[in-house]
Design a protein around this nucleic acid. Structure first.
Length: 586
DNA sequence: CTGGGGAAGGGGCCC
DNA sequence: AGGGCCCCTTCCCCA
């Protein structure tokens, strides 16, 4: 499954890809390597695996439940199920681990539930009648398919537990799975000789909540014997001893390594399966919440809709509700604004956080059926489709021009009217578009004009620039930034005076980036080590992209909130305008 | 450097 | 509350 993992090519966001063919004219990257993404690969791969399962092709594992038989693939099961992953030793980098199993009897999982779980494994879609939800939940718990378990639990409304309890339950789920494997292996050790080449494993699965066993903190995995290959029932589980409970607490809550080890398994498996699973498994909070308002709505929602390949429906809501449970107890998420756990940005509008989260994850679930280009949002896809349909719903009333976007028309109309409402307060050059003025202010063109108009007064420096005595520009970098208008784009924290406004933008930028990166990692850690292990690159990629932009000279540490920037700019503009007016008065 | 087109992301409104 | 739709701003890219 490792080979299945989709690369995260850096060119993905910049190069429109003819998805179907993979043919694309791309310029080589810096090192001459070209990364060509095939976004459909994972889906197609999964679909073909499912076809193989249906036809029994290449199936090397048969699951049975109360007489029903389900041919399947070991690798897929190991990818989707923590139980099988550990049973097969897949977490140790593959090897022959557990290679002997060919039939696995799971009578403790209802046939229908097992069928649904297998469908999920091969389609990333869980289709179950509501009446069978509890069986599926139980099966998912037993097999260590955390995302499904969470989904079922949410749908069943079992979200009343305080967050800590939920996490405890999830941890118990992991440990139960582990215990199953360990017990299985322990039994196998003693009776391996009794089995022949074709073995059937029968597992007496313990109830998930009955007895959380220890998750070994240092080495939570027993690293199952590769030769584990017997056919028998496992002994029923016993309630945890006080030592075990204590061990659980210390090992799970106290020692992140334990969970990190769990996450190690997630890195073994690539592709869609672990993608979804890990996101759910990662839900357990290994560290205290950084923010009470943290919502994990994205946890499912951000990955749950789109092309319908992910779990859907009410999962996100409940997960978000859990995420919104404060330290004081159960509290239903009610406030519309939500804070992004990664960038801390407050997202306004109901249901907008999942949309925002996709900006961090890079997920683009909305794909154009014509050209294959993917989008993070369906409304963007809808607009994109106008390209193919030729629809340009915004015609200019003054000329034959038509536009895809209303705002394009708006910009265009300003050409006809000749209106240039955006004037540079320094050089008084007018622009038809605000962003052009913004670009102008960030550039040097305006500066040149300004330097030709030396100011009077004692606060001028030699080259005519205001030395900013009023602002105390003792720092050359700050003076430089003001010279280039970039003062208007300093981080809000700087301009607000928070944290020392005399520091140079560069230093502040570095700090902001570092703190942001650090926070992203913390948020990831909070969301779960599996998540961290599974796709930190997504988050880091986003940060790198932003850092790259900023490194290219874009507004360092520029707030992402446009209104804030605008406000800042307005403030700065007023300040500078006032400055100019003061000069004029002189 | 500027004008223009388009993409991306956020917010408001409505269902 | 979630999601669709729309508008807006900002940014990138190209000519």
């Amino acid at each position: 499954m490792e080979a299945m993992r989709q690369p995260l090519p850096r060119l993905q966001l910049t190069v429109p890809m003819p998805i179907k063919t993979g043919k694309v004219a791309m310029s080589p990257g810096e090192d001459g390597l070209i990364g060509i993404p095939f976004p459909e690969h994972s889906n197609e791969l999964l679909s073909r695996l499912n076809d193989q399962r249906r036809t029994g092709l290449l199936c090397d594992l048969t699951l049975t439940s109360r007489g029903a038989r389900y041919p399947t693939h070991r690798s897929v099961m190991a990818a989707v199920s923590l139980y099988f992953r550990r049973l097969f030793g897949a977490e140790e980098g593959g090897g022959e681990g557990g290679g002997g199993f060919s039939v696995c009897q799971l009578d403790c999982v209802a046939p229908d539930a097992l069928d649904a779980l297998l469908d999920f494994a091969y389609t990333a879609t869980l289709t179950i009648p509501s009446s069978g939800m509890r069986d599926v939940l139980r099966g998912a718990q037993l097999l260590g398919i955390q995302c499904v378990a969470d989904a079922c639990r949410d749908i069943l409304g079992e979200t009343a537990e305080a967050e800590g309890e939920t996490a405890e339950e999830q941890r118990a789920q992991h440990t139960t799975t582990e215990r199953m494997v360990e017990a299985q292996q322990a039994v196998e050790k003693g009776s391996r000789r009794k089995t022949d080449r074709k073995k059937v494993k029968k597992v007496g699965l313990p109830h998930i909540n009955s007895s959380p066993l220890t998750l070994l903190p240092a080495s939570p995995f027993s690293h199952p014997s590769p030769a584990s290959d017997s056919l028998r029932s496992l002994p029923s589980t016993q309630p945890p001893s006080p030592e075990q409970e204590e061990h659980l607490k210390s090992g799970v809550n106290g020692d992140p390594k334990g969970i990190r080890e769990v996450g190690r398994g997630a890195t073994v498996n690539g592709g869609l399966l672990h993608w979804l699973q890990d996101r759910r498994i990662a839900h357990q909070p290994p560290v205290p919440p950084l923010n009470d308002k943290l919502s994990e709505e994205d946890d499912m929602e951000g990955f749950g809709d789109g092309d319908g390949k992910y779990l859907h429906t009410s999962i996100p809501t409940s997960v978000a509700e859990r995420g919104a449970v404060g330290v004081g107890g159960r509290k239903r998420k009610s406030q519309t604004p939500q804070q992004c756990p990664v960038c801390q940005k407050i997202i306004h509008g109901a249901g907008k956080l999942p949309r925002h989260m996709r900006t961090h994850t890079g997920e683009k679930p909305f794909q154009c059926s014509t050209c294959g280009v993917r989008f993070t949002r369906n409304d963007k896809l809808k607009i994109h489709m106008r390209k193919h349909t030729g629809e340009r719903p915004y015609p200019c009333t003054h000329c034959p021009a038509r536009f895809l976007h209303s705002y394009d028309l708006k910009n265009h109309l300003s050409l006809h009217s000749g209106a240039r409402p955006f004037e540079c307060p320094l050089c008084h050059k007018a622009f038809a578009r605000e962003d052009h003025l913004q670009r102008h202010r960030k550039g040097h063109s305006c500066l040149e004009l300004r330097t030709r108009r030396p100011r009077r007064g004692p606060e001028l420096v030699e080259d005519g620039r205001e030395d900013g005595g009023r602002r105390g520009l003792s720092n050359p970098l700050e003076a430089l930034s003001l010279q280039a208008h970039s003062s208007a784009f300093l981080p809000r924290t700087v301009l607000d005076g928070g944290g020392g406004s005399t520091a140079s933008p560069a230093l502040l930028f570095t700090g902001d980036m570092e703190s942001e990166r650090s926070f992203a990692l913390q948020a990831l850690a909070q969301l779960g080590p599996q998540r961290l292990a599974g796709y930190p690159e997504l988050f880091l990629r986003g940060l790198e992209m932003r850092g790259g932009r900023e490194a290219e000279g874009e507004d360092p540490g520029r707030p992402h909130s446009p209104p804030r920037q605008r406000d800042q700019w307005a403030d700065e503009g007023e300040e500078e305008i006032g400055e100019e007016e003061a000069e004029e008065e002189e």
